[in-house]
Design a protein around this nucleic acid. Structure first.
Lengths: 199, 199
DNA sequence: CACTAACCGGACCGTTCGGTCAACTTGCTA
DNA sequence: TAGCAAGTTGACCGAACGGTCCGGTTAGTG
């Protein structure tokens, strides 16, 4: 069996354009952005979208995978930093900035369980786990903080800042600071008690 | 002009059922839950839904208004507590618990700008502002924390905890604790520097 | 009990969506 | 440059949606 031919030049160009156009369209209209609109923004026919991505979910998965791999690469690079606390801080800030520029977190609900997305998330989580472990060893954060904690908390500042229409564009910075303060080691702290019920 | 008659018994019963069924359906399927499914779950014809709520958005607005008014009432009650710090803590915990039971925060995107919803939010925000001000005066939290800060941060623990499929059901408690630690007064803390760009 | 206004139900309508397909065009190779 | 596989296109399809409408039903009144 001969090796399959490399893809044609216009095909790779269209694929790149499609990913960019889809990210823009999803950021603007949410998951309900239509495939037809994405195709139009990319300057391409609707059929071309389905040639590159068999279903809409596959398109979503490709976008998510790209973004998570970006963070994964940053994480690997930061693991060679000689200041574990600063490395964690920089990672969290970059993750928040990525979401601030274009919040696509809701895409994970639609395609979060697809195998390729799960694999990309696992790669990213592996880097996060190691960054957090290094920061904890260096005493920059509590010893009981896990990689999952950080992965979850790093989503919060933008989500929160995006909930108010007239929020300052760098409001997420403020909340990132508050959360990082909460992660700092200062002896044992009690967890809040059980929730009261509403009246 | 004579006073309009009180609504019929079956009408008020159906309206109650509809609100409950819609909340369940939205929590399960998101904003895309169909009006037909909501009607079916309520044991009612589709036409009845539109009789009570002229559009789907009006239904969403009614649900949001109910939930915000619940929090507003709790806030007013807590303003009479003699421990401002504990009052704030209890309010945040109740808000998180409300979301934990049924996360309907995404509904605000669809109907957040409708007048009735904005009015309910304003009522709730007024209570939050006063609770936070009292907690700050009592030294329970930093002096520079605003009601808006708290409103935003109180959304974070559940959002964050809901992002992982196999998370413990009371994980939000852990994050609420971390965030509250970050709000405690301990002298000035530097905000994080500007965000680095991704590689 | 009889009357009526309010209420209910579900067939129906126009629109929009994700996805398919067959005819057409184009980049690569020999 | 000739030929063809790969790529592109937009009309088209069935499904599902929000919303309308009117004939039948029922709760409350006098």
């Amino acid at each position: 069996m001969p090796a399959s031919r490399p893809p044609r030049a216009d095909a790779v160009r269209n694929r790149r354009r499609l990913l960019a156009a889809a990210a823009d369209e999803f950021a603007e209209y949410g998951l309900d952005a239509s495939v037809a609109d994405i195709a139009r923004r990319a300057g391409v026919g609707k059929g071309t979208v389905f040639r590159h991505f068999p279903t809409k979910d596959d398109l979503v998965a490709a976008i998510l995978t790209d973004r998570m791999d970006d963070l994964h690469r940053l994480g690997e690079r930061l693991l060679e930093s000689d200041d574990p606390g600063a490395a964690l801080h920089e990672f969290l800030t970059a993750a928040a900035a990525q979401r601030q520029e274009r919040d696509l977190s809701f895409l994970a609900e639609a395609a979060g369980s697809m195998p390729e997305v799960a694999a990309a998330r696992a790669r990213m989580m592996d880097a996060i786990d190691r960054i957090v472990a290094r920061a904890a060893e260096a005493g920059a954060i509590r010893a009981d903080v896990t990689g999952t904690d950080v992965f979850l908390l790093m989503c919060a500042p933008n989500y929160v800042a995006g909930s108010v229409p007239d929020a300052a564009p760098d409001l997420w910075c403020r909340y990132l600071g508050i959360i990082l303060d909460g992660l700092r080691p200062e002896g044992a702290r009690p967890l809040p008690a059980a929730a009261p019920t509403l009246p």
